[in-house]
């Protein structure tokens, strides 16, 4: 397959964390997956062994996706086979994200996040229990 060439003069990335990838060059398949329990508490008490993804349906429910195969024939002509970018400046790349300079074939990314907030009751009449 005839591909375009990506030319980037300068890239600056401040921080990369949580399974992020910075790739220079072509790839064939990219698959990213992340899940997170985002817990905010009024009191800063966190045990290291808390959290079970399986009890929350948000982490197991199937996501309906469009089929990636297209039925119509597609022809691409690269009259100028160069993608040129002078500068890229990124503050942060996080949680199974990808910064990719180059071409790929198939990209598939998925993320699932569950937010939980735990607050103290203001008074007993307002308290709502789980």
């Amino acid at each position: 397959m005839f591909r375009r060439t990506s030319i980037v003069d300068e890239v600056k990335i401040g921080t990369m964390f949580y399974s992020s990838i910075f790739e220079i060059g072509d790839s064939s398949i990219i698959q990213g997956f992340s899940r997170a329990l985002a817990v905010q508490r009024e009191q800063e008490t966190f045990y290291g062994n808390e959290g079970n993804f399986n009890i929350y349906p948000v982490f197991t429910q199937p996501i309906p996706l469009q089929p990636v195969e297209i039925s119509i024939p597609m022809y691409t002509e690269n009259l100028n086979p160069i993608i040129k970018v002078n500068h890229i400046n990124i503050n942060g790349v996080s949680v199974a994200s990808v910064v990719h300079i180059g071409s790929s074939n198939h990209v598939s990314m998925e993320t699932r996040i569950k937010h939980i907030r735990q607050l103290f009751p203001k008074n007993k009449t307002q308290s709502v229990d789980r």
């Binding site: 591909r3 375009r4 990506s6 980037v8 992020s20 072509d26 990219i30 990213g32 997956f33 992340s34 997170a36 929350y56 948000v58 982490f59 429910q61 996501i63 996706l65 469009q66 990636v68 195969e69 993608i83 970018v85 890229i88 990124i90 503050n91 942060g92 790349v93 996080s94 949680v95 199974a96 994200s97 990808v98 910064v99 990719h100 300079i101 180059g102 071409s103 790929s104 074939n105 198939h106 990209v107 598939s108 990314m109 998925e110 993320t111 699932r112 996040i113 569950k114 937010h115």
Partner: peptide
């Protein structure tokens, strides 16, 4: 500013791309 939660920044071509996100 940020590329986060299974996002992708691509300078290039790709055949197929599938993104899914569940936020609860």
């Amino acid at each position: 500013i940020g590329v986060s939660s299974s996002s992708i920044l691509m300078i290039g071509d790709t055949q197929t791309i599938q993104l899914a996100s569940v936020f609860d």
